[in-house]
């Protein structure tokens, strides 16, 4: 009976993971299929769709734009979230901390399409174009709560007494932060940055109304490409993103022991 229960539980989890990961695995499999239509029966194995990406400069330059936007948005989000998480962890009653953390998490409850639209309409109300910084703004405000959550988790394990120790040994406010606080919190900071970077890099809806041909991000270029046709090349682009995201997940876990859940 106990064994049966365990087996049923295992089967349930297996099916659930298959359901969650299935579409991704199917995309990866399709990217190696030489057939020119999508979806199509499997005809063999080829890497030609990956080579085809290299012949499309718009994908490469869009990946560059996405990387710059993601890096700026993640950096802004992490700096701002670190200061907030530090203040909330160090001081304040737990109810005030909870209320403030909820307020700062509010961008998560605003649809990304609406964030994109709102920034577009603020810019047009002011009579200016949204430009590159409008794009960064939308991404930064959306990823900030994710950084905040990781940093609050990291700071919950941080012993503020080490700061007192540093100060009693004559360390100033700034040198304590530089020599003691920041190095100890490095894993959370790096994980927060990486996580925000990825979330911004793969995001389509935030950029929807904010890009021009010069500032098209990778998901926007994929979006435009899929509107006209679908072939395994787009599956190859997606597979590269999946591979990069998977590598980052493993590296974060292995070297920083940071996960989204504790």
């Amino acid at each position: 009976m106990r064994f049966l229960g365990k087996a049923a539980g295992g089967l349930y989890l297996l099916l659930l993971y298959l359901f969650v990961a299935g579409p991704l695995l199917f995309v990866i499999a399709t990217s190696f299929n030489p057939a020119t239509s999508f979806p199509a029966p499997f005809e063999g194995l080829t890497l030609s769709w990956y080579a085809a990406i290299l012949r499309r400069p718009e994908f490469l330059s869009a990946a560059g734009t996405s990387a710059v936007v993601a890096a700026l948005a993640a950096a802004l989000a992490v700096v701002v979230a670190f200061l907030a998480a530090y203040a909330l962890s160090r001081n304040g009653s737990s109810s005030a901390r909870g209320a403030m953390a909820t307020l700062l998490a509010s961008p998560l409850l605003v649809p990304q399409v609406v964030i994109s639209l709102a920034i577009l309409q603020l810019a047009s109300a002011w009579g200016v174009g949204t430009g590159f910084w409008g794009l960064v703004a939308a991404h930064a405000v959306y990823v900030m709560p994710f950084a905040l959550r990781l940093l609050l988790t990291g700071l919950a394990r941080f012993d503020f007494a080490v700061e007192e120790a540093s100060r009693s040994l004559g360390g100033g406010w700034l040198s304590t932060w530089r020599e003691v606080t920041l190095p100890l919190l490095r894993p959370s900071i790096v994980a927060g940055f990486t996580f925000c970077f990825i979330l911004s890099f793969v995001n389509l809806p935030l950029s929807l109304f904010l890009t021009s041909p010069d500032t098209a991000t990778l998901p926007i270029v994929m979006f435009a490409y899929i509107e006209s046709r679908i072939d395994p090349m787009i599956a190859a682009v997606a597979s590269v993103i999946v591979l990069a995201a998977g590598t980052a997940t493993i590296l974060l876990d292995r070297f920083l022991h940071v996960r989204l859940v504790d």
């Binding site: 995309v27 995001n203 998901p219 679908i230 997606a238 876990d253 996960r259």
Partner: peptide
């Protein structure tokens, strides 16, 4: 640990890549 990572991974891959898979899986019965 692995089980949690397995759940994080589709979030990080993003809905655009996942939906491509669904377009293939749902078309003509997949």
């Amino acid at each position: 640990n692995l089980a949690i990572m397995g759940l994080t991974f589709p979030i990080l891959a993003g809905p655009l890549t996942v939906v491509l898979g669904w377009m293939a899986l749902l078309a003509n019965g997949g």
